[in-house]
Amino acid sequence: KEFRPGDKVVLPPYGVGVVAGIAQRSVSGVSRAYYQVDFPGSRSKAYVPVEAPHSVGLRKAL
């Protein structure tokens, strides 16, 4: 896996977040693995496909 729990990442347009782990989510009846990204200071979460994280701009924070 490219990202691990605890990694600081950037996800446009949300900003800097932390990978909380990998979650299985069902979309249109198909279960897939997603990185769960939490954003400190907020209750917001984002789910990014493990198979294509760069397709939505997910990258490691510098």
Rank of each mutant, 00 (worst) to 15 (best):
R32Y: 07
Y35V: 03
A61I: 15
S26I: 14
K45H: 12
S31E: 08
V27R: 06
A20S: 12
S26V: 14
V56D: 05
A20P: 00
D38T: 14
G29M: 03
G41S: 10
V18D: 01
S28L: 13
K8F: 13
F39V: 02
P12D: 06
R43T: 11
K45F: 12
Y35C: 04
P13D: 05
G15P: 01
V30T: 08
P49N: 04
S44T: 14
S42W: 10
V16D: 06
S26W: 15
E51T: 08
R43D: 12
P49C: 10
E51H: 07
Q36C: 11
P40E: 09
H54L: 08
Y14Q: 03
A46N: 02
P12T: 04
P49R: 05
V50K: 03
A52P: 04
R4F: 10
L58G: 03
Q36H: 06
V19L: 08
G15Y: 03
S26C: 14
S31H: 08
V37S: 02
E51G: 08
K60H: 15
A20V: 14
A61M: 11
S42H: 09
P13T: 06
Q24F: 15
V27F: 12
F39M: 03
V16T: 07
V56R: 10
V50C: 05
Y47N: 02
S31Y: 13
I22Q: 02
H54Y: 10
K8D: 04
Q36W: 07
V30L: 11
G41E: 11
G29P: 00
R43P: 12
V27L: 08
G21I: 04
F3N: 00
S42A: 09
V10K: 04
Q24C: 15
V9Y: 07
P5T: 12
F39A: 01
P40Q: 08
E51L: 07
S44Y: 15
G29Q: 03
V19F: 05
V10P: 01
V18Y: 13
V50F: 06
S44I: 14
Y34E: 00
F39I: 03
Y14K: 03
Q24K: 11
R25Q: 06
K1G: 13
P5D: 04
R43L: 12
V48F: 04
E51N: 10
I22T: 06
R59Y: 09
A61N: 05
Y34A: 00
L62C: 14
E2T: 11
V16G: 04
V48Q: 01
S42E: 07
V16Y: 15
R43H: 12
R59H: 13
P12F: 11
P5S: 08
P5F: 09
S28I: 04
Q36E: 13
S31G: 05
Q36I: 15
G41C: 15
P53F: 08
P40G: 10
V27A: 06
Q36A: 09
P13M: 08
R43N: 14
Y47H: 02
S55Y: 08
V37L: 06
G15Q: 02
F3G: 01
G41L: 12
V30G: 06
G41W: 11
S31K: 11
K45M: 12
P12A: 08
P53L: 06
Y14W: 12
S44P: 08
V56G: 08
I22G: 00
P13S: 06
R43A: 11
L62F: 12
V9K: 01
Y34I: 00
V48T: 01
G41Q: 11
R32G: 13
R32H: 07
R25M: 13
D38N: 13
A33I: 08
S42C: 13
E51C: 07
L11T: 01
S31T: 14
F3Q: 00
G57C: 11
G17A: 02
E2Q: 11
S44G: 12
V10S: 06
A33Y: 14
E51F: 06
G29V: 01
V16C: 15
V30I: 10
D38I: 15
K45G: 04
A23K: 13
E2K: 11
A33K: 10
G6W: 02
V19D: 01
E51M: 07
P12I: 07
E51V: 06
A46C: 11
V37F: 02
S28K: 13
G21P: 00
G15I: 02
G41P: 13
F39N: 01
V10E: 07
S31N: 10
G21K: 10
V50E: 02
Y35E: 04
I22M: 05
G29C: 04
Y34H: 03
S28Q: 14
G6R: 02
P5N: 06
A23Y: 14
G17E: 00
P13Y: 10
R59V: 09
R25I: 14
G15D: 01
P13F: 10
R25N: 05
I22S: 09
L11V: 05
L62I: 11
L11P: 04
A20N: 07
A23M: 15
R43K: 12
P40L: 11
E2C: 14
R4Q: 11
Q24G: 04
L58P: 03
S26N: 12
Q36G: 01
Y35G: 00
L11K: 01
V50P: 00
K45D: 02
A46P: 01
D38W: 15
P5L: 13
Y34L: 02
Q24I: 15
K8L: 15
F39Y: 02
G57K: 05
G6Y: 03
G57E: 04
V30M: 08
S31R: 12
G41Y: 13
V50G: 00
V9M: 03
V9T: 03
V27H: 09
S28P: 02
K45Q: 10
R25D: 03
G57S: 04
V27P: 04
S28V: 07
I22L: 06
S26P: 05
A52Y: 09
P49S: 09
V9P: 07
V9N: 02
K45A: 12
Y47P: 00
P53T: 12
Q36M: 13
P12Q: 07
R43V: 11
F3A: 00
P53N: 05
K1W: 15
Y47D: 02
S31A: 09
Y34V: 03
D7H: 03
R59L: 07
G17C: 03
S44M: 15
L62D: 13
P13H: 09
R59P: 03
K8W: 15
E2H: 10
H54V: 05
A46L: 09
R4D: 04
S28R: 13
L58F: 04
Y47Q: 02
S44R: 14
V56H: 14
E51D: 14
R4E: 08
A46Q: 11
R32P: 00
S42G: 11
Q36Y: 07
Y47L: 06
A52M: 07
L62P: 12
S44D: 10
G15C: 15
A61H: 11
V48P: 00
V19Y: 05
A23R: 14
G17Y: 02
K45L: 09
G29T: 02
L62H: 11
K45E: 05
Y47C: 05
P5C: 13
V37N: 00
H54S: 09
V10A: 04
R43E: 11
P5E: 09
Y47V: 02
A23W: 13
K60R: 10
R25H: 07
S55W: 07
V10I: 13
A61W: 15
S55G: 07
V48D: 02
Y47I: 03
S42K: 11
Y14D: 00
S26D: 10
G21F: 06
K45P: 14
V9A: 00
K60S: 09
P53E: 04
E2M: 13
L62W: 10
R59G: 04
L62E: 13
Q36K: 12
S31L: 13
V56E: 06
R32K: 11
V19R: 00
A23F: 15
F3S: 00
R25T: 05
K45T: 14
V50N: 02
R4P: 12
K45R: 14
G57P: 04
L62K: 09
Y47F: 11
R32L: 06
S44E: 12
V48G: 00
G6E: 01
K60Q: 08
V27Q: 07
Q36R: 11
L58T: 03
Y14C: 11
H54A: 10
V18T: 08
P13K: 09
D38P: 00
P12Y: 12
S26E: 12
F39D: 01
G29A: 02
L11S: 02
A52N: 14
G17R: 01
Y34M: 04
A20D: 03
A33R: 12
V18W: 12
K1F: 15
V16F: 14
F39P: 01
L11W: 06
E2D: 10
S28A: 13
F39L: 04
P40M: 09
A20G: 06
P5W: 04
V9L: 03
L11A: 02
D38C: 15
G6F: 03
S55E: 11
V56Y: 13
Q24Y: 15
V48C: 06
F3C: 15
R32S: 07
G41K: 09
F3H: 05
S28D: 14
